[in-house]
Write a protein that binds this DNA or RNA. Structure first.
Lengths: 127, 127
DNA sequence: GATTGATTCAACCATGTGGCTGAATGTGCC
DNA sequence: GGCACATTCAGCCACATGGTTGAATCAATC
């Protein structure tokens, strides 16, 4: 009860830690899906899939709309943005490494006695 | 046995799902840390902290160098970059929403015929 | 060889997770 | 009312996780 001060990132990263749930998110990236449609490729009981969906829902990663008999789920990307931001804090660490590599390459190039090509450097990795 | 084809993202996201481990990564962003140093703010036994560190290590998020008696850990950002990239796939979904919001605000503005007040919108909780 | 110090190992325990099956729920249609 | 359908609920089980404590390891120093 006092534990409920847990960060929302706990739930988000935990939800993302399961391949079935990540696959469901990918599916939802293609548009709305019913529970049955999400469960179908998962080779597991509907009840098990339903649990996964509830985990995603609890993490705020999907929203559910009950249309007649079927529950239609759609992506709720905000928590993904939060997780993305959290990871972004560390971006400098991997770009730093690339910078070091880049510098090494430049020195190689300089040794070869011709100018280094212009390097765009703020480029987000982007896919 | 056949299950060992699990994605490395499983381990990475699972490792990130625990606040203690995320705090450790933050600490490591400040430079190398010994196991004791990483354990110290955690209010738990050294053995428990050691387990967390092994989880991070198994996910490839930290590297360990044994210097005399102390094990010195440092950040290994590559898996974070992979996770960041994975999340980046969904970036269009949250930017899309912002675009829609932006369009709505513009239309509001046009209707009101005076500029919309600046909206503070992204209060990050941080973690 | 014994000591110190940092860390891990080995039980052990409580709780959480992920799967199953079978029953229950809710909601239109016949 | 009863049926069909989509989904969840309630148990149950195996195993993973996260914590504990106490013993073990390993390397330099006294």
């Amino acid at each position: 009860m006092v534990e409920s001060i847990a960060s929302p990132l706990d739930a988000v990263f935990h939800a993302l830690g399961d391949p079935t749930r990540r696959r469901m998110l990918r599916d939802l990236a293609g548009g709305e899906r019913s529970v049955t449609e999400l469960a179908e490729p998962a080779a597991m009981s509907l009840a098990a899939a339903s649990k996964h969906i509830k985990v995603l829902e609890a993490a705020g990663l999907i929203r559910r709309e009950v249309r007649w008999r079927t529950h239609v789920c759609r992506l709720a990307p905000e928590p993904l943005a939060a997780a993305h931001d959290w990871l972004g804090f560390y971006e400098r660490f991997w770009t730093e490494r690339l910078d070091i590599l880049d510098r090494l390459l430049r020195e190689e190039t300089k040794k070869d006695d011709h100018p280094a090509p212009p390097q765009p450097q703020g480029e987000k990795s982007d896919d």
